[in-house]
Design a protein around this nucleic acid. Structure first.
Lengths: 240, 240, 240, 240
DNA sequence: GATGAATGAGATTTCATTCAT
DNA sequence: AATGAATGAAATCTCATTCAT
């Protein structure tokens, strides 16, 4: 099952990794399109590394090009603008996300629990790609941020995946019927994001194992239909 | 009880609000100290508004000065550097935070629940000050961000407050003894931050009331000692 | 009779117009030479359109290639450099110019008058080709402009044509003997250029018909030998 | 009487000329506004020099700042954008223009003749300011040039001045009644501009004295009411 | 304390040109 | 011949900072 952090990274290559090679090891002639794709991947990987380290605004397009092993001019030439590059990276970060949320089949509650597990495990690897995602996400918080629409879509899709899972669980009686699917979606995604962010800000000070255990308790205690559900939610508290 | 969002805001003043006046209505001659404080508050409020709107890096010191109703030069003159202003604002955002977390006295579980309530209520006001806090916090996510130390301290203090409260609750039997105070602290702070952030990114798409209700369920179901606690947490899951 | 504005324009073709076709309708295999010429014409026409719209420096070679219906790279590939393209266009603009100024035969004064007529008529068509000529000519005004030599030659040839015509007229007694052929050449070319330029800058505000009528009066009143020539030019005014 | 070329030029100063000095020769403390004005004048003069030499697009703002004896950044800082600087220069070039066209009083035909004299004399000085004006004017020829509106206004004002003068002359019987004031305005302004431009492009090849003499003949022969006016303009020729 | 002119480093962006396909 | 990827120099513009008022 997938979590909310991308995987692809071609590493901190200092020179553009040459593409497919013939049997003999001599680099095969690449087509224009291959060159393009190769460059794009290298540039996005480089951007992710630099964004993770210094942030979006503190990273120049020239640095991205050079980190990718190309020229100072390529990043802008390829993407047309910095905004386009950032958006492209944000979109790529999304791709791996929700994929597979639904196809767990059997037990939806267990699916949620293992999603928590996988998500936080991905964060604790500290791959740089994860931090890059959070950095770009953080850059979408200003009210007028051009990036905000990207994450409006992204977050909604993530929440929808959770919500669908919860409803399925309720249908299959693996999740307590009283749960509010939409509320659970927001709270669970928030729980993961907020916990991960704390770890990224202070890896020393945050015990991600302990936090993960509590996160799973939150979910299990609240959604497991086999638990005795005494004194149910007081409805008046729903009013904020 | 206070949550993690600042309150003070002198509004989008287009000219510096004049300070204390004498009884007679004639403006009393303000001391240098008063003028300084006045200017500082106006500048920080202006910075918060602009950061909330456009982000830290997209806001210039000159704009801060003018938004505050002063000159283009004042922000730098007053704080000495942009980094100093940002840090100052981050610190001010902290001030109101954890203060008072412990002095609830009576019922610790209820204290946690009302903290959730208050925190999200503060967010839903959408005061700009709240968004400013999150924007600056988001700017602290890059690994080499100069701001990171500020939020290492801030977050730790917030978590410590929660942790102390949980331990006190366990001592007073208002919180289930099996709970892991440190884990709960991280998870709860994460829950609030992550939920709030989703709302700030997509106020339309996130029902904060429903999310708040689920957040409180998470906490009540997990920490309320009066609930039957069947099939306790599987310890092997603590390993990430 | 021709004036100083080019005629050829293959229109805003979005794809390269295919060349000559065989009788059967199946496109004949064009020779390299033909393709070259075809491409060159399309590129120059495209350049003229873009120069007329945005100016020489604000037009990129890539845009020229695409406007011509070819690739971004062709313009440079074909001409070798931007300077070469511009000079080539300037030269082509000259081609149609003075040609035929002398072979009017009969009445030289009438020839001058109809030249005025034709020149301004060409301008009022507002074909884009005309404006392109003036734009490039305007780009030759800076003292160190690389284009200046091109127009030194061009203008001189235009003036020479006029001068020859005036001398012929004086020989044939169709133009007043007292006229200074060189002076008339400069003044007449200036009159046409300056009038046309005003129209190009402000087509709404300039009545080209009225201006043309006055231009012709200038010439007729000054050069017609049948008019009574009272109080002739005071020679002392020739000193500037 | 004024012509269409500016006069002010503080020379190719390599360091900012210091402003007003006290009696003792020690530079007086300048006010902020004095500094501003001083800088603006120096920058505009520098821009005019460079534009005259290399053209608008081939001159960078950094060069303007340094030519003016200031920093690379000042030109942009002061004017906000290159377009603003160019427009400002165009406007300044206008200022001296039409001023005084009307207050000749006495004899309007003579006023026109001496205007021609003065205009071309200004051009022949080759002051650089004149060429700068023509260079910027030439840059306004492209259809979408941002500068075009500036010269729409400028040229119209110049023509209006001439037209008013012609009408006054007709009222005072110093200019032939049959003349079309608007047509004369366009033709006369065109005559001056076009003649001057030819000289600027090829000072060697153009005899400005001879051309000026012919220009004056054009005007005198056409507008002098004391000349016998035989075979008046054929009206059908007004149609272009 | 406060203003705003001036600096200069650095960012994005454009683009002629070169090079590989 | 033609395409388009890639380079790198140079432009405009932004802005924290410095300096003079």
């Amino acid at each position: 099952m997938s979590s909310s952090t991308p995987r692809s990274d071609s590493g901190p290559a200092k020179s553009p990794e040459r593409g497919p090679t013939e049997q003999g090891g001599r680099p095969r002639r690449r087509t224009q399109e291959e060159r393009r794709n190769q460059a794009e991947r290298a540039l996005l990987d480089a951007a992710a590394r630099l964004f993770a380290r210094r942030g979006v605004d503190q990273t120049s397009l020239a640095e991205v090009g050079e980190e990718a092993g190309y020229s100072r001019g390529l990043a802008n030439h390829h993407f047309g603008s910095k905004a386009a590059l950032v958006e492209r990276l944000a979109h790529r970060s999304q791709r791996d996300f929700v994929a597979g949320l639904g196809d767990i089949g059997g037990h939806e509650l267990r699916a949620l629990l293992s999603m928590i597990q996988a998500y936080l495990a991905g964060v604790s690897e500290n791959s740089g790609q994860t931090r890059a995602f959070f950095v770009v996400w953080g850059a979408a918080l200003p009210a007028e941020a051009a990036l905000r629409p990207v994450f409006v879509t992204d977050d909604a899709r993530f929440r929808d995946g959770v919500e669908v899972l919860v409803r399925a669980g309720q249908a299959h009686r693996t999740i307590r019927a009283e749960a509010d699917p939409a509320g659970v979606a927001v709270a669970l995604v928030g729980l993961l994001r907020g916990t991960a962010a704390q770890f990224l800000i202070d890896p020393q000070g945050v015990d991600l194992d302990a936090a993960g255990a509590t996160c799973k308790q939150f979910v299990r205690y609240t959604l497991d239909p086999t638990r005795a559900a005494t004194n149910e939610a007081q409805p008046e508290e729903r009013k904020l």
